[in-house]
Amino acid sequence: MILCTGESLIDMVPENGQYRPLSGGAVYNTTVALGRLGVPTAYFWPISRDPFGEQLLRPLVEAGVDIDLCPRTDRLTTLAFVTLTGGEARYSFYDEGSAGRMLHPDEVPALPSQITALFAGGISLVPDPCGAAVESLVARERGRLPIMLDPNIRPFFIQDEAAYRARLSRMLPMADIVKLSGDDLEWLHPGASHEEAARAVLGLGPKVVLQTGGSEGARAHWAGETVFAPSFRVQVADTIGAGDTFNAGVLTSLSRQGMLTPEGLESLAAEHLLAALTLGAQAASITVSRHGANPPWAHEMTA
């Protein structure tokens, strides 16, 4: 069972002069996508008892995600108000004292024996105490569980860049798999090419660095030759949740191939990575073909 830990929130999306509340958050989206793809999945993140918390729980339950590790709290759900300018989204976060933001390292539970891999990341790595809580979980489980990290870097959310860069410098070497977009790579290594930046991250210790490029396809940088998988051509509605769904597809493929274990990651071959990239790209293509973060169900992947 894959455990996902990181933010869930409500995106307040403008619609006809008002705001429509949509469930979201990078790690939350990946969690829902994994469940829909039929992978045994659990989620660890505080969920508010407010109405938005109830809204967040429904898609998790519908996707079969185990939410037993999610503490309930009277703190409020994080809200992200979206402003669209020329088709580009800008966000204003209402996050101070929120349910997720206030997760403390001493609230990180012991993991059940059925947890076999860990996925973490998102904006939850930025502020404290929740950033320290996620870091402590990853540090505790590294080496015992395969760990995939997607920092999903959002510069507008970062208030203390030095502290955040320091956290990533500690966490990236702890991960077995790191997913980074082109924007992420440019932020991490300004002035370097995407290939150079990805190889620099690989040099920190991960076994695989996945580089996503939207319509330009995805690459896996590892000990061998770079593996490339093209994107699937579809009519794009929007790109919300595309990278999150890609993560779920990669994890699904590696799990099904029997490679999402410490031993499996040591024996990765190019064909394993190509299959993972391809399934990730296929899943993401379905998400971008419809509005919002609405990842595919398993039966849609075979249609």
Score class of each variant (00 low, 15 high):
Arg49His: 14
Leu103Met: 09
Val39Asn: 02
Ala200Met: 04
Ser253His: 09
Gly38Phe: 04
Ile177Thr: 00
Ser92Lys: 14
Ile47Asp: 09
Glu15Gly: 00
Glu141Leu: 05
Ala303Glu: 13
Ala198Arg: 06
Arg154Glu: 06
Ile10Val: 11
Thr302Pro: 04
Ala33Gly: 02
Arg170His: 14
Pro230Trp: 09
Val134Trp: 10
Arg90Asn: 12
Met12Pro: 07
Gly121Phe: 02
Asp74Glu: 15
Ile153Leu: 09
Pro46Cys: 05
Asn29Glu: 12
Ser215Gln: 15
Asp150Val: 04
Ala293Arg: 11
Pro173Val: 00
Phe52Gly: 01
Ser253Thr: 06
Asn29Ala: 05
Gln282Ala: 15
Ile147Pro: 07
Glu186Ala: 14
Glu271Asn: 10
Gly38Val: 03
Tyr91Thr: 10
Val13Phe: 08
Ala270Thr: 10
Asp106Pro: 01
Pro109Arg: 14
Asp11Val: 11
Arg90Thr: 14
Ile47Gln: 12
Leu268Gln: 01
Val13Asn: 05
Leu251Ser: 12
Pro206Thr: 07
Trp222Gly: 00
Arg75Leu: 13
Ser285Phe: 01
Asn294Gln: 14
Gly182Glu: 13
Met102Asn: 06
Ala192Met: 06
Val236Thr: 14
Leu79Val: 08
Asp106His: 14
Gly6Gln: 06
Ala80Asp: 08
Asp160Ile: 10
Gly264Leu: 15
Ala80Val: 12
Ala132Thr: 07
Asp74Pro: 11
Leu180Arg: 00
Gly292Tyr: 10
Ala163Ser: 14
His104Arg: 15
Leu118Trp: 13
Ser124Glu: 05
Gly264Ile: 14
His189Gly: 00
Leu188Glu: 01
Gly213His: 11
Arg165Lys: 13
Gly191Asp: 03
Gly35Leu: 00
Leu137Arg: 07
Leu56Ser: 05
Ile158Trp: 14
Ala229Gly: 02
Val288Glu: 04
Ala198Ser: 07
Ser253Tyr: 08
Ala270Ser: 15
Gly143His: 13
Val61Tyr: 07
Ser124Tyr: 13
Ala162Lys: 15
Cys70Leu: 06
Gly25Asp: 03
Gly258Leu: 07
Ser23Asn: 11
Arg233Phe: 01
Thr278Trp: 03
Ala197Phe: 04
Arg101Gly: 03
Met148Glu: 00
Pro105Thr: 05
Arg90Phe: 09
Val39Glu: 05
Pro51Leu: 00
Thr78Ser: 12
Thr73Phe: 14
Ile147Val: 15
Ala197Glu: 02
Gly224Leu: 01
Leu56Glu: 03
Ala284Lys: 06
Gly213Tyr: 04
